[in-house]
Simulated scan of single mutants.
Amino acid sequence: MPVTADRLPGAAAPGDPAPPPGLVVVGRFDQTPGYGVSRPRGAGSWLFTWTTGGRGRLRQGGTETWAGAGDLVVLAPGVRHDYGVAPGAPRWRFWWAHCRARPSWAAWLSPYGAGDGLHVVAPTPAQVHDRIEAAFRRMLADARWTGTGAPPAAEDDREEVAVAHGTAARELALCALEEVVLLTAGAARHPSSGPGVDPRVRRAQELIAADPAAPHTVRSLAAAVALSPSRFAHLFSQQLGRSPMRALREARLHHAARLLEGTGLPVERVAVASGFASPFHFNRVFRERYGMPPGAYRAGGPMVGT
């Protein structure tokens, strides 16, 4: 769990530069004690780190986390950050990528927000680690593609850092990183679904996730799990930190985002298919959640902080 930050190992150089916004840069490092990076103004792009061995310590603003094997830690742009080999660890082996993230990733990462733009997607089951590793290898290879002939083989990854210069190379590299985001966020245990969650609350979550557009109410969800509406609403909010209707709205917005990404349905139809009776209300809450109206989201506007 993130805790208040204190100190990190000394940085390699004060104010280490970050790649310019718009570039897609991927790399693989195996660092020993003493390695650290400090950016007082943060970076202009998102930073994704996937730890494969050892232990790292990452701090963004006043929020800090320790990363072990199988942990994806994501830092949003524009916030001061530091990271390096964790104190006492013999090394830190990790993949990293700087890029302008796709808008659709916001919904996948937001449940894992720890504060100050830092996201900790963990733990992920060991069964998906090989596939995530393969996706990073493919990203490193695709970033080196010149657009002539076939992209380099993912096995030919002797280089530790690659910058995607061409449009096709950038998009291919981002596709590989998107697989990483989906695999980690989809397989990791959601913070709100960990041990200790009442089975009735978990069941209500499942009902919402199965059909977010259904006309769910506090009363209907409570009846489905054999609780009174007041007891259900109190228990749900107490255990998950948000009301049942807030959780329902988040599920509907997530569903709407998926429809905007994967279908050509008009925005009005997306609103109805996601459970929003009023297109005007849908546009307002969608903009509040994703920082842009549905039409701009579909067009692929920049991902905003979550």
Results as ranks from 00 to 15, higher is better:
189 R>H: 11
169 A>S: 12
139 M>I: 06
158 R>I: 10
167 T>V: 12
190 H>N: 05
188 A>T: 01
196 G>L: 03
130 D>N: 06
159 E>R: 14
138 R>E: 14
133 E>Q: 10
172 L>G: 04
173 A>D: 00
163 V>H: 11
149 G>M: 10
175 C>L: 11
189 R>P: 01
135 A>L: 15
188 A>N: 02
141 A>E: 04
133 E>H: 10
176 A>M: 07
155 E>L: 10
161 V>Q: 14
166 G>L: 09
188 A>V: 00
161 V>N: 07
173 A>I: 01
142 D>F: 07
148 T>P: 02
168 A>F: 05
152 P>E: 14
138 R>D: 11
151 P>Q: 13
137 R>N: 09
155 E>S: 14
141 A>K: 04
171 E>T: 05
188 A>E: 01
143 A>D: 04
193 S>K: 02
165 H>E: 14
197 V>R: 14
145 W>Y: 12
174 L>Q: 09
164 A>Q: 05
142 D>Y: 06
184 T>P: 00
154 A>P: 04
171 E>Y: 06
162 A>Q: 04
158 R>W: 11
195 P>T: 08
148 T>L: 11
153 A>L: 14
186 G>M: 14
192 S>F: 06
147 G>F: 13
188 A>R: 00
138 R>V: 05
184 T>F: 00
194 G>F: 04
185 A>S: 15
179 E>C: 09
191 P>K: 00
181 V>M: 03
190 H>W: 08
134 A>F: 04
135 A>S: 12
154 A>I: 04
158 R>D: 14
184 T>E: 08
177 L>T: 03
190 H>E: 09
152 P>R: 12
190 H>K: 06
161 V>R: 15
156 D>S: 11
197 V>M: 01
180 V>A: 01
145 W>A: 11
170 R>K: 14
184 T>N: 03
134 A>D: 11
151 P>T: 10
174 L>N: 03
155 E>C: 06
174 L>P: 02
167 T>D: 15
191 P>F: 00
136 F>W: 15
186 G>N: 03
135 A>F: 12
145 W>G: 08
161 V>Y: 15
176 A>C: 13
132 I>D: 01
173 A>C: 05
142 D>L: 12
130 D>T: 05
150 A>Q: 09
182 L>H: 08
176 A>F: 00
194 G>W: 03
174 L>F: 05
196 G>W: 06
170 R>Q: 13
